[in-house]
Amino acid sequence: MNFHTRKWVKPEDLNPNGSLFGGSLLKWIDEEAAIYAIVQLENSRVVTKYISQIDFVSSAKQGDIIELGITATHFGRTSITLCCEVRNKITRKSILTIDKLVFVNMDRDGNPIPHGKTKIKYIEEQFEKEDDNDPRKN
């Protein structure tokens, strides 16, 4: 699982019980997962199609630093399926897990289109590709 995004739990993120409001966390997850899908599919037009059961394992409180982990688990013809874990950055204690988030690749008119991807693209691969095309490096 790749943990790229970190969030600092602030007062405006809390529910009346003084812990992290689930709605704030879900907003962060949807945004992070959409960005991950955009990068993987190389298309800024993706939409959230499905989010499976959300398992809140523990809570976070004001001042905690949490990190969001996202990994691609399946590439469909027009979709990408991801899984997610959110954990406390310091203690590594799991806060939430989601087994399936499905995003669909769209064209300009909002229709699903094939993306042609079959495996996770890591950022290092993108930099290697860019370096290969850089005339200053050859």
Rank of each mutant, 00 (worst) to 15 (best):
F103D: 00
K117R: 12
I120W: 06
I123D: 08
P135V: 01
P135N: 02
R108L: 10
P114E: 13
Q126E: 15
D132T: 11
Y122F: 14
Q126L: 14
D131I: 15
E125R: 00
Y122D: 05
I113A: 04
P114N: 08
R108I: 10
K119D: 07
K121I: 15
Q126N: 09
F127Q: 05
G110P: 02
D131T: 13
E124M: 03
R136G: 09
R108N: 11
Q126C: 06
E130Y: 13
R136W: 08
M106C: 04
D107N: 12
R136K: 05
I123C: 09
I113E: 08
I113H: 05
D131N: 14
E128W: 08
G116M: 05
K119R: 15
F103I: 01
K119N: 10
Y122V: 11
V104A: 06
D107K: 02
E130G: 01
I123K: 14
K129R: 15
Y122T: 08
P114R: 07
I123Y: 13
E124D: 12
R136F: 13
P112A: 02
K129G: 03
F127E: 03
N133R: 14
E128T: 10
N105L: 06
M106L: 13
P135W: 01
G110F: 00
N105G: 06
D109I: 04
K117F: 06
K117A: 12
P114Y: 06
K119W: 03
G110Q: 04
I120F: 09
E125S: 10
R108K: 12
D107M: 01
T118W: 06
D134F: 07
D131P: 01
K119Y: 06
Q126I: 14
I123R: 13
D132H: 15
F103L: 08
K129W: 13
D109Q: 11
P135T: 00
D132E: 15
D107F: 01
T118A: 03
D109F: 09
F103H: 09
Y122L: 13
K121C: 12
F127D: 00
D131W: 14
E130Q: 13
P135R: 00
K119H: 11
K129D: 15
D107G: 03
P112Q: 02
N111D: 09
D109K: 08
